[in-house]
Amino acid sequence: MFRWMSRSKNGSANGLHVESDYLIDLRNIEKAYETEAGPFLALQGIDLQVKPGEFVAVVGKSGSGKSTLINMITGIDRPTEGEVIVRNTPIHTLSEGNMAVWRGKNMGIVFQFFQLLPTLTVVENIMLPMDFCNMYTPGERYDRAIELLQMVEMEEQAHKLPSAVSGGQQQRAAIARALANDPPIIVADEPTGNLDSYTADNVFAMFEKLVYEEDKTILMVTHDTDLANRVGRKLTISDGEILTDEQLREAQPA
């Protein structure tokens, strides 16, 4: 229903282009951190391909490497070895500045602690990615932000500061912000981790709608096994490796 707001975008940045049949293509990823006790291997031998329209849950114990894996996909972190190709762009090769723009246009990120900017109102928070990435005309930005807030049933709270709304509402606003630039991919790091079960369910339902009605591709880190079992595909991470990769539902056709 929000398809009219979508904009077609070129996923590549700075002319870098790598052919891949997948929306997200992680090839032989390894990530090592230097610690005082010596190198620590957070990820090893990760090969992961995600097709458009998939709803993927990443589960695992604390310290298993879930967040590191997600950070590879969002470009927040870089692999020590291997390639990360998202929408045919080798994002591991992008500079920090180019990465920011690329991410702003291609990926929406939802954090566990919502991370709305405290001094901006809810609607301003949603307009901020459009502002940074120069998406939509200045006149369109406000309308789009309000539309997105309507989608997440938050239009009543549009002009409140984040501190004036509940945690669940903040997370819904954060989802709206993730959708601001109409990215094809949403990455959520424990988006329901800080919410009660009722609110968590609402948020999850919103994700389902985005995947099944809006053709978004979602990767979601979660501890919640119930939610993890409701997605299309479940990856279990242990000691930096993909332990299991279960297809629970068929992906929506792109």
Binding site: G97, A100, R103, G104, L117, L128, P129, F132
Partner: peptide, 13 residues
């Protein structure tokens, strides 16, 4: 943290 978030949503340095 806010700088991080702004970068995460597309803000360039």
């Amino acid at each position: 943290r806010q700088i991080g978030i702004m970068k995460a949503v597309g803000g360039r340095t």
